[in-house]
């Protein structure tokens, strides 16, 4: 098992190199000079030359990439073009905000998604199932900024219960400020999780061992949770892992609508201002997070399904 984890962690290195390589070259080869971008529409030739030198844009692209990777391996993600502040500090300052929002978002998604998925699967083709699936479809297709604004209008503007934007400072304020963005984020993921739960439950629901369990006189609750859900969990966990991974990467729309100071907004802002080190730093960080979440999901598999655990042991 540990060998497997170490192997997976080592495999992150080529992933990161690939990610940085692609992002670095896309950003540098896209039109628009970062120096001109920073200096705006009034920049003398001398100022542009000065800024390019300051940003180190005069070196060949490959040299710059090489330097970047060497620095990255030393834990230095560089400094932002825009404000000369450390990229690492900016990214790590924003990450906890994104993490707490992602965590709450995924909680909302699980609370809604799994029970509704189970009910839908058990009552397949009933009115309840059809309604749930329609709601789930709407949930998947609903744009975050629309749902977010709608919730703000109802709960902040009309009812005055919750703050419309921003991240509260600890305690109740934080909890209150988390509710609307979490519901916005969670609803979208909940829809995916509901559909995934329903379909994987349906796959196991007619298996022979379910009939056997029922024939043995096992209670319906135990049959549902122990025999059906546990066997149906692998694809659900995968879906949840993927959802959580992408939420950790920053839910850009939700963070923008709710003025949430997270990683997603940092990335949008830095892409807009072509702040290459900051975009790269955020992407590297997100890639690491995504890989880690995937690894955790793979480890969780082993606890859900003993067959997989035995396979890990063989490795």
């Amino acid at each position: 098992m540990y060998k497997y984890i170490i192997k997976r962690l080592l495999m992150m290195i080529p992933v990161l190199l690939g990610v940085t390589f692609i992002v670095f070259f896309i950003l540098n080869m896209s039109p628009g000079d970062p120096a001109a971008m920073i200096l705006g529409d009034r920049a003398s030739a001398e100022a542009l030359a000065m800024k390019r030198e300051e940003l180190g844009l005069n070196d060949p692209l490959l040299v710059r990439y090489f330097n970047y990777v060497v620095d990255m391996l030393h834990g230095d993600l560089g400094t932002s073009y825009k404000n000369s502040l450390s990229v690492w500090e900016q990214v790590t300052e924003r990450f906890p905000n994104t993490a707490i929002l992602a965590l709450c978002g995924i909680c909302v998604a699980l609370i809604i998604g799994i029970p509704t998925g189970i009910i839908s699967a058990k009552k397949q083709y009933s009115l309840m199932d059809n309604c749930t699936m329609v709601v789930a479809l709407i949930g998947v297709s609903m744009p975050a900024f629309w749902l977010g604004l709608l919730l703000v209008i109802v709960f902040s503007l009309n009812l005055g219960w919750l703050p419309s934007q921003g991240m509260g400072d600890g305690g109740m304020e934080l909890v209150k400020s988390l509710i609307l963005p979490s519901i916005t984020l969670g609803t979208m993921s909940a829809a995916t999780i509901t559909r995934m739960t329903r379909s994987s439950m349906l796959e196991v629901i007619r298996q022979d061992y379910i009939s056997t369990a029922r024939a043995k006189g096992v209670s319906e609750k135990t049959v549902t949770i122990k025999h059906m859900l546990r066997n149906a969990l692998i694809p659900i966990v995968t879906a949840v892992g993927l959802q959580f991974g992408s939420l950790l990467g920053g839910a850009m729309l939700t963070e923008t609508v709710f003025s949430w100071p997270g990683l997603g907004r940092l990335m949008v802002d830095s892409i807009k201002s072509k702040d290459i080190p900051l975009v790269l730093g955020s992407v590297v960080f997100m890639a690491v997070m995504f890989s880690v979440v995937n690894l955790i999901v793979d480890i969780v598999y082993a606890y859900i399904d003993p067959r997989i655990k035995s396979q890990y042991k063989k490795k």
């Binding site: 909302v108 609370i111 419309s164 600890g170 305690g171 304020e173 509710i179 979490s182």
Partner: peptide, 25 residues
């Protein structure tokens, strides 16, 4: 379902951080 979501997200997201006497957003 809506009421539960609201309530649960309140509970689920709670904890951590010092308590504050300030109420309202």
């Amino acid at each position: 379902a809506l009421a539960t979501t609201m309530a649960l997200s309140l509970v689920g997201c709670g904890g951590g951080g010092e308590t504050s006497t300030t109420t309202g957003g």
